[in-house]
């Protein structure tokens, strides 16, 4: 028993703890990756719902009536650029360049906030013209899918603020930078889901 206890107690103070820390980091990374994959599966269910219901407009507005090409293109550009500069921010902090890290992080936040703002405006305009979720199966599925994505972007923005708070409070320690890496992975995953949204929802809808 005592021989089993010592290795567990040791790593806290012993100098040769890097292997233990790496193992832990690997496990955490794996666990976080599993969360990302399960989140992607949530979106798959919503995509399947939309694919099944997209033609059921029940006499209400159809996809080609309400989707705008330029808005979709602008949203795509905003999100893709945001994911790029958040990657830059991570490299900046990893290289010890705090100015670049905070600067790119602020840019990523601004672009993401603009995306959410445009989406809220779009939803408000749709509801104002009578295209609300309860109008038809098509619109229920549309709002469920796109708003869940928008909610993820919003959560990502809040996470960026808490990440900044962590950086200011604790500095760019290994623990905090690992948090930043998970934030970036989350943001990239949201970007990949957006590819699905414009490819399944907006472009085919405009094409009709």
């Amino acid at each position: 028993m005592s021989s089993a206890m010592t290795p567990e107690a040791q790593p806290i103070t012993a100098p040769h703890t890097s292997a233990h820390l790496e193992d832990r980091a690997r496990t955490e990374q794996m666990g976080y990756w599993l969360y990302l994959m399960s989140d992607a599966i949530l979106f798959v269910a919503l995509f399947a719902t939309y694919a099944v219901l997209h033609a059921n407009s029940a006499g209400g507005p159809e996809a080609s009536d309400i989707f705008e090409f330029s808005r979709t293109a602008l949203n795509s550009a905003l999100l893709l650029t945001s994911t790029l500069v958040l990657g830059f921010s991570g490299i900046g902090f990893a290289k010890g360049n705090k100015g670049a890290g905070f600067g790119w992080l602020a840019a990523a936040f601004a672009l993401g906030a603009l995306f959410v703002g445009l989406e809220v405006q779009e939803f408000a305009a749709l509801v104002a013209q009578g295209a609300s979720p309860q109008t038809s199966g098509f619109l229920s599925a549309y709002f469920a899918l796109v708003a869940t994505h928008g909610l993820h972007v919003t959560v990502g923005l809040i996470w960026m603020l808490t990440y900044v708070a962590l950086l200011l409070y604790e500095g760019p320690t290994r623990r905090v930078l690992a948090n930043g890496n998970r934030l970036a992975a989350f943001w990239h995953m949201i970007g990949i889901v957006w590819i699905g949204i414009y490819s399944v929802v907006y472009l085919p809808g405009i094409l009709q």
């Binding site: 992607a40 798959v44 995509f47 399947a48 099944v52």
Partner: peptide, 13 residues
């Protein structure tokens, strides 16, 4: 996850 994508979207359709 990719297998589930194919099963859920393909299967539903």
């Amino acid at each position: 996850a990719v297998v589930l994508v194919v099963l859920m979207i393909g299967g539903s359709l």
